[in-house]
Structure formats: C-alpha cells, structure tokens
Design a protein around this nucleic acid. Structure first.
Lengths: 198, 198
DNA sequence: ACAAAAGTGTTGGGCTTACACCCATGT
DNA sequence: ACATGGGTGTAAGCCCAACACTTTTGT
C-alpha cells in the first residue's frame, strides 16, 4: 500500500554535435519523493536543486520500477537545456548517449528518452530548449543532426524551417573563424507547440 | 519518503461510432499498488481482475497526483478492447468521452487518453485492438471516424489502408441488413508497430 | 590565393485530396 | 422497385528529396 517513490531526471543537451546526458556515479540524478508533496512542486524543487538558476524544459517520461533499489519506483522526467547553460561542475558528467559508461544500469531509460526526443524535435518546436536565444541556422541544423543521428540537406532544411516561420532573422551576424558570417535568428515564440517539422 | 501509489486504468472502446470509456462510481478503475510488487505484474493482476478472460492492449500513460485522495499518486494506464469483448456487466458503465458524467473529476486524464489514442491510430497499427479478428473495411473506417471525430473519404481510406498491406481479405463475406455483402478482412500481424496511417 | 562555412533554386516523383457513380443484396 | 451500404479511378496540387555552385570572410 505504501511505496518508496523517487523522482529521476534524464537531462539531455547537445555538445559538439553529440547528444549528451547527465550521469553521476553511474546513476541518473534522483531524489526521494516525500509523502504529502505533490509531484509538480516536488519536481520543481528537485530540478532547481540539480540545475540552479536555469529554466530547463521538463516533461514526464514514464514510471518504472527502480532497477537498483528493489521495491522502489521511479517517476522519470526528461529535461532539456542548452549546453552553455549547464552548470560547469556538471559538464564533465555529461556523457554521450552513444557511449554510456559500463555498469550504467539505466541504459533503457536513456534510450527511451533519446527516442522521445527524436520524436519531439520532428513534430514540435521543443528544439528551442537546446539553443541559446540567438543562433544561426547552421547551429540549429547541427542540433537536429546530433539528435536524429543523420545528416540533413542544408537547402531543404533551411527551406522547410524558414517556411514554418517559427524563427526570425535579427539582422545580426555571427562569425566563426575564417568563414562568411552567418545570420543570427531567434525563435518568435518560446513555448512548445505541435508543428510537423521533418 | 513513502507514498500511496494506485494503478488506474482508462479502458477505451468504440460502440456505435462513439468512443467510450469505463467509469464506475464516478472514478476510473483503480487499485492500490502494494509495496514490494513490481509494476508490470501488479498491472497484469489488476487488469485481469477488471477485465477477466480478455487480453486488452495496455500502455502506460503517465503518473499524476490523485485528484481525490490527496497525497496519493496514480500511475495511469490506458487499455483498449473491442466492444464485444467487454464483460457485459461493465457495458452499462461505458460512457461517451464527449459526454462525461457531471462530478467526474478525472476528465483531464480521459482527455489526455483520447489525445494519445488519436495519435496512436494515426501513426501505428494499434487500431486492431479495437476490432474483432474479422472485420470489414467499413467497420474499420467507422472506428477511425469515432476516434478522430471526423468523417473520412471512403475511397481514400481504402486505398491508403490497403496499400499499407497490414490487412488481408479472407474471402469471406459479411451481410448487414439489406445491403451488398462486404468482404471480411483480418490483420496480418497482431502486434503494435509504427506505420504512418493517416 | 585559398580554406571554410554561408547562402541559394529547380526538378521529378510520390502522396494526398477531392470527387460521383454503379453493384449486390434484402425488403 | 427501392433502400442500403459496398465497392471502384482519376486528376490536380502539394510536399519531399536530390542535387552544385557562388559568396563572404579570415589567414
């Protein structure tokens, strides 16, 4: 009748064209859920403890038996944050989803989160949660490529994305090394909505 | 640290071109989750208690605070079963999702389940869980129309569905009243897979 | 001058949508 | 004979995928 409940977060981000996830001591970050609390407020508290001074996108994934602590259940969430906003002491704990550490028992959870993210970026605009406010279309495309694990055609990608008119050109330019400067864009709305993208 | 956990089921089916859901005493069926049990086996036990001698399709929806019993959380599942297979004493408790009883506090859960089902029937073959093994294409189309809440073009629906080659003609015919007999089809595979349908 | 990434159009094929009539049966 | 639902094809428009070169900058 009673049960130990933990909240668990799969924090994902993109670094150097790789999708990465926060893993600490071979576990996903997790916190006991105290009796009498409601889920949303407990979650908020937990997330702002793990990621102080940020506002990640958070969504519930599923609930499962704890693979380690028998008799406990995990309510698993996934969170998205642009890599630059991840607290620096956590950055070294971000691991590529394609090279999860040996002995990490929550692989299935991370794989599921990866699938969910793939779906989400194709059918909604959540991707803005992985980019700084201002970004170039190439940066955007690289985020997609990292998440989907395949290369995209530059012309088709731009055509499609611009036709959705979710982003607008700021008029600013950004220069990376010795190449032509790129136009800087922003998302018109920073709230998740369903839009078929790819 | 400890918590009361309940398993809750949103059982959906289609009756007379209407999407219906099982509501008993103004609540969704629910059962305490005993400590030490794992979720899947507890779920199986619960489902076969609510729906003896059937094998509904079951999938986890999400976990939420119990809107009635404060301090308890609900792990909510949704289940699909062809209407003919619903135990007859439960049939009178199946309510249209568009006419939920007053005082029914779990409307949001049912609405979410409806959304999920809409998505599922468009992008996967789950619909077979709402039909008897043998069915006509018109019956299939009516199931879709009930779930999606809009009429579909008969020619386009058949063309699309047959082109997916998920179903095969049994050669049998079925007669409804005074009309031309319809061909009877079966699903080639009765397991859920992702296929873009509509 | 060259290296690097930015930016830009067209075409063909496939899919989706819209649309109307004849057929087989029961009454 | 008529009412009922079953069954069938085509054409137009839209969307997607494939594809290569020029531009702007830094070194």
């Amino acid at each position: 009748m009673v049960h130990t409940v933990h909240l668990t977060v799969v924090l994902m981000s993109v670094r150097d064209n790789e999708l990465v996830v926060l893993i600490n001591n071979n576990r996903l970050p997790s916190q006991p859920h105290a009796e009498g609390q409601n889920l949303d407020s407990a979650l908020k508290t937990f997330v702002s403890y793990v990621l102080p001074n940020t506002s990640p996108y958070v969504e519930q994934l599923f609930t499962t038996d704890d693979p380690v602590e028998i008799g406990s259940i995990l309510v698993v969430y996934f969170a998205l944050l642009p890599y630059e906003q991840i607290p620096s002491q956590l950055k070294k704990s971000m691991r590529s989803v394609h090279a999860l550490p040996g002995g990490f028992i929550e692989k299935n959870i991370v794989n599921y989160a990866t699938q969910r993210l793939r779906w989400k970026v194709e059918y909604t605009n959540v991707v803005y949660n992985l980019l700084p406010k201002e970004f170039t279309l190439s940066e955007l495309q690289h985020i997609y490529e990292a998440i989907l694990g395949r290369l995209l055609d530059k012309r088709n990608f731009r055509k499609k994305f611009l036709s959705l008119s979710m982003v607008k050109d700021t008029g600013k330019k950004k220069i990376f090394g010795r190449a032509r400067p790129a136009s800087v864009y922003v998302f018109k709305k920073r709230e998740v909505s369903i839009i078929e993208i790819l």
